[in-house]
Design a binder for these strands. Structure first.
Lengths: 148, 148
DNA sequence: TTATGTGCAAACTCTTTGCATTACC
DNA sequence: GGTAATGCAAAGAGTTTGCACATAA
């Protein structure tokens, strides 16, 4: 069952309170923008989106909020070769990415075998695995059709 | 058997010739710097290194050479969260990376099971896999000892 | 000789920071 | 009322580009 936005909002409120910080509508709006997005967004895209709700927000606030939210684990970022950093809401389900080199489409997937295999490899190197990032680059099925 | 530098130099010469371009000592020096390095280097670090051989080289030349060499597959780049893009010589052996979050150490590894599993997953999504990048983040064995 | 490659500096893009002001607790 | 958060503008870092000159073919 997917969480609805009020649960993320609650999470943010508790986090802010537990740290003795203050709640702000800006951080909420940014979180909501990521909640509503089906794809990964750049800081610039988030800024544009949030402005539709709150015309007065500044780009610096977006950057500040993003690093805060990421350091607290409410959101995640991925960085692909050329396109720079992109953010997504941490919906509590780890996944990896396939990125189409033609159209830029991002396919999210999860495979348990991949997870456990990495754990085995880490152990072999006496490495304490905390997290990982797997990006598979190639051509998505749509673009393959267009090629032929 | 590991290749020695003359083979990379030859590869560069042939590439340049086949494209109707010109050979330059700068590109060679940059390639040699990557050949001699045991770790991944940032453009700035490469610039500093190359300057020891060729005092007159410009940073712009380093950037231009790096994107040329990368687009031709002679070198590879990886980009970790904060530290930006880093380059390494393509020694013809694909590998993935473990990155220690404490000391920044990079461990290279290769595991065939990981490769074939990705191929299987890609097929399931009708995705034509071309390349991938797997970064595992955690604590290396040295840093684990220090912790306890 | 002629086009590519280079070095330098300026331009650009992305991100961070300083500061006065606003707004939460 | 006191402190964190914001908006703005300026500063920084990293990278790219324009142009005149150097150099390989």
């Amino acid at each position: 069952m997917a969480k609805d936005f009020s649960q993320y909002k609650e999470q943010l409120k508790e986090l802010v309170k537990s740290k003795g910080l203050k709640y702000s509508s800006q951080r909420e709006d940014i979180l909501k923008t990521l909640f509503n997005s089906k794809k990964h967004l750049t800081p610039e895209e988030i800024y544009t989106e949030v402005k539709k709700i709150n015309k007065n927000i500044g780009l610096a606030t977006v950057y500040r909020a993003l690093s805060f939210l990421e350091s607290e684990g409410l959101i995640n970022s991925i960085s692909f070769g050329v396109e720079g950093k992109k953010y997504e809401l941490n919906r509590g389900e780890h996944h990896d990415h396939m990125i189409c080199l033609k159209c830029g489409k991002i396919i999210e997937f999860f495979d348990e075998r991949l997870e456990s295999l990495q754990e085995i490899i880490a152990q072999k190197h006496d490495f304490k695995l905390i997290t990982h990032e797997l990006n598979m680059y190639g051509i998505c099925s749509n673009c393959q059709e267009e090629e032929s």
